[in-house]
């Protein structure tokens, strides 16, 4: 461990705001990249489900 305490870890020397904002935004971008295709797949399948139901009821 290269830090003495948790407060030390959060402070990152004097560079806390830089390190944490860089990591925070990057992680958010990674999450967006996973969430978009997962949601798109759900939406597509829901649309298809509706279409299939319509066709069967005809």
């Amino acid at each position: 461990m290269s830090f003495d305490s948790f407060a030390d870890f959060i402070a990152m020397g004097t560079h806390g705001p830089y390190v944490w904002s860089a990591y925070g935004i990057s992680l958010a971008v990674l999450v967006i990249n996973v969430a978009l295709p997962v949601m798109a797949r759900r939406r597509y399948l829901q649309d298809e489900a509706r279409r299939l139901r319509r066709e069967e009821s005809k």
């Binding site: 290269s2 990152m12 020397g13 830089y18 990591y23």
Partner: peptide
């Protein structure tokens, strides 16, 4: 948390 800080840049190097 575990990598040592850079001798010149300190902790900002973790980026």
């Amino acid at each position: 948390a575990f990598a040592p800080p850079d001798y010149q840049q300190g902790n900002s190097f973790r980026i």
